[in-house]
């Protein structure tokens, strides 16, 4: 799973530059959480189109994860990109004061969509494309909020597993404390993906790589020494999150239907 980080950086920065150009965007906007994925994406954007064309929006809820905010600001300073800090408490709290709920996941998803809504608002204001920050591991496992952090114009790191994003981050010069951070959806303090799934990312990625990239059967992966229970759990997560990776299903009734046999390229005329 080792990658040539110089080559990958070349491809991804070229992709960002090309794709923005095709759609006549000069600028990019992204949500910066202080975590690894959005930091790496910010670095790639700055390299691709110049720091002055990148707007990073830091969107904390509450004062809970101060370390993340300061890490995000560190990235902004290091790259010299533009940034804004927008607290999402007023919008989220206004809603939940009327429709209260205790469930942290439901609330976390709402916050993710609040952030998405801000990013798309600034996309229009600034004529900047929204850049996604979802890695391959979380896309496969469905560890993201549909129409929340999973919404974007392009998603440069979407074919890199978390551990590969870390390799790339190291090469790009991401601050050590961000590289070492435990991946988290950030729904509540202390939440981490690894705690929830029960094994560390090295192993999660390795299992996914065997199944997805190398097309191994579950029993072959188990024979490599991974627990059958974990393998089953990960495959189940892939299965149950397929809906997040697709457009909404349309029942086909006409001769030619969006999402079925109306097949046009995204890059038409570009």
């Amino acid at each position: 799973m080792k990658i040539n980080t110089v080559f990958v950086e070349r491809i991804l920065t070229k992709f960002i530059k090309d794709e923005l150009g095709k759609f006549h965007f000069k600028k990019a906007v992204l949500g910066l959480s202080g975590g690894l994925d959005s930091s790496v994406t910010a670095f790639l954007c700055a390299k691709a189109i110049g720091a002055e064309n990148v707007l990073a929006i830091i969107m904390p809820y509450g004062e809970s994860i101060k370390k993340d905010i300061s890490d995000a600001k560190k990235v902004v300073k290091q790259l010299g990109i533009n940034s804004k800090t927008i607290h999402i408490n007023p919008m989220v709290d206004a809603y939940y004061s009327k429709y209260p709920i205790q469930n942290r996941v439901i609330k976390g998803n709402k916050m993710a969509r609040e952030r998405m809504s801000i990013l798309y608002d600034f996309s229009s204001r600034e004529k900047a494309m929204v850049i996604g920050t979802s890695n391959k591991t979380e896309l496969l496992l469905g560890y993201g909020t549909i129409h929340g952090d999973m919404a974007s114009g392009i998603n440069p790191i979407g074919d890199l597993y978390k551990t590969q994003v870390r390799q790339l981050g190291k090469h790009l010069g991401i601050p050590e404390e961000i590289l070492k951070k435990s991946p988290s959806a950030g729904f509540w303090p202390g939440q981490t993906d690894e705690k929830e799934i029960g094994i560390d990312y090295e192993n999660i990625d390795n299992i996914l790589y065997q199944i997805v990239d190398l097309r191994k059967q579950k029993k072959e992966v188990a024979a490599m020494g991974f627990s059958q229970k974990t393998i089953d759990r990960l495959v189940e997560m892939i299965k149950n999150s397929e809906f997040k990776r697709k457009l909404p299903l349309i029942p086909k009734i006409s001769e030619r239907t969006v999402g079925h046999d109306f097949l046009l390229p995204y890059d038409w005329g570009k």
Binding site: K2, I3, N4, F7, I11
Partner: peptide, 10 residues
Amino acid sequence: PGRGINENDA
């Protein structure tokens, strides 16, 4: 299309 990334520069 290119596919497969490893430690090489291609």
